[in-house]
Amino acid sequence: MTARDAFLYALSFLLLVACNLAGGLIATALHLPVPGTVIGILILLAGLAAHGRVPQPIRRMAEFLLYHLNLFYIPAGVGVMAYVALVRQDLLPIVAALIGGTCLALVAGALAFHWTAKLTGNAPDDRP
């Protein structure tokens, strides 16, 4: 990696940070009921669409961060410890809601996609 590459990657990272921050500022300023990160995604998407393609360093940086996405969830995973005591009296409903709710959502989402694709002739087997 040359110094120029490193500079471009750093710039790409700053762009992602800037989109996230800008999204947060817009959400706060306009009192939108939407988290800043969502607006950040839309800002970057609009920028890419206006540019017409994804510059290589931005693509590499985004893919690098997404590849290690699990890493960024670990602190919140450790945080489970801090809240188990706090919610002890609600433990059963919480565990049931998390396991039951997630399994229901998985099945509902997959079947909804599957059936709609079949009904509209968009199933993988139907395509030429």
Binding site: V17, I41, A62, E63
Partner: peptide, 21 residues
């Protein structure tokens, strides 16, 4: 730990890239 939690923001914004591609 907050550093990693904070990085989740920019990483999530990066989802715009596969979405566009």
């Amino acid at each position: 730990g907050w550093v990693l939690l904070w990085l989740l923001g920019p990483a999530t914004v990066g989802l715009a890239v596969p979405l566009y591609l």
